[in-house]
Write a protein that binds this DNA or RNA. Sequence first.
RNA 1: GUGGUCGUAGCUCAAUGGUAGAGCCCCAGAUUGUGGUUCUGGUUGUUGCGGGUUCGAGUCCCGUCGGCCACCCCA
Length: 412
Amino acid sequence: MQALPGFRDFLPSDCAARNYIFARWRDVARRCGFVEWDGPVLEPTDLYQKKSGPEIVTQLFNFTDKGEREVAMRPELTPTLARVVAAHEREFRKPLKWFSIGQFFRYEKQQRGRLREHFQLNCDIIGETALAADIELVALCIDIVRAFGFTEKDFVVRISDREFWTEFLRSQKVAPERWDEILQVIDKFGREPREKTTEKLGQLADPVLRILSEGGKSEKLDQLVDGLRARGLADFVDVDVRVVRGLAYYTGIVFEVFDRAGKFRAIAGGGRYDNLIEQLSDGAVSIPALGFAMGDVVLGELIRETASAREAMQKATAAEQKIDIYIVIAKEERRADALAQIQKLRDRGYRVDYPLAPDKVAKQFQTAEQLGAGIAILFGDEWPQVKVKTLATREEVLVLHDEIITRVANLL
RNA sequence: GUGGUCGUAGCUCAAUGGUAGAGCCCCAGAUUGUGGUUCUGGUUGUUGCGGGUUCGAGUCCCGUCGGCCACCCCA
């Protein structure tokens, strides 16, 4: 038996890496004033079918439950967020700055960096129309990637604005019903043959291709970059109007994070979705919002393939997995005394381990070493004294058992 | 979902169509209370699974499942 395709087992080292990622996500988000929340892993399929665009539906991990309900494992958090905010927004002062770390699912053939399950950080700002919110969100996104040891040489945030395109389409007198379709074509630009793009755009082909090749400019995008420059983050961003993102609900600024080498899929992506909450609440609550998501899979790959980031992670996870004290029971008749001390040490907050079954002293020291213990305490013939050994220096001192705590406090 | 490619021990990989191996890991020892090194010994495989060709298949053919890559799509 093995795990289902696209689902991962997390062995201790994998879990350590995962916790390392979560810890940095959480730390930076909290540092920026975001508070953590979460929603259900299972949602009504309708939640996604209605508002996320038709593409998403074919890739849902969905089924009919025993109550004949059509349900789906959540593929993303934003629809849930919109629902929750619509229901509870009056309980909070605006703007809300919320983040969440959770597992998400999709049903599609897996590939590298693309599984059927992954963990994602979501950060959203709700109830603020000012561009300052967009700047804050992009800055947070940059700070989070930086927290893993990456620099402007390692990654870039490509920023665009859907309004840039909607204004263009309005100026070209294109019917609003066709906007989403044309944005999809722009999104695919570069992944599709040029002739196919031209054909789909029809008479819009010339102006659109001109913008795509010359690059677009807008006052809003300039202001956004200025805001980031004021924070010293301008080197992390590139304005690139080719970015529109696949989801239909985005209304303004959109952005994606890529590794500079272009080797991986997007590390993160997001944007403004000012109408989504109103749509999902059937017009009951109208409140602007924006957010981004960052997955653990691509980020983890980038960490493992970047020497500095990899070493930082290894150092942190090694330290996290180490224990403080290993208890060596040299004489089984001292086991009860050892356990009494173990309990005391653990109550003091030390990480303490010991052999569950009788074992040779040599083997016990080997185990102590392997577990990364700072010190070993040997219980044996010296009782009521014990030997406290600093493993790194091999120095050993005899202390009375009721002085262990103070001695240990000095050594660790 | 479509196409290509690969699948051998827990891991990394060997083996002209002719008896399935190595290293690492793990376990146990080196006269019984001291760890990173060393030495000795040991466990582990229906060669992913199921058919077929052949005197004989890990090796060739077909199917299937799984991994990887490209497409599709991207939250």
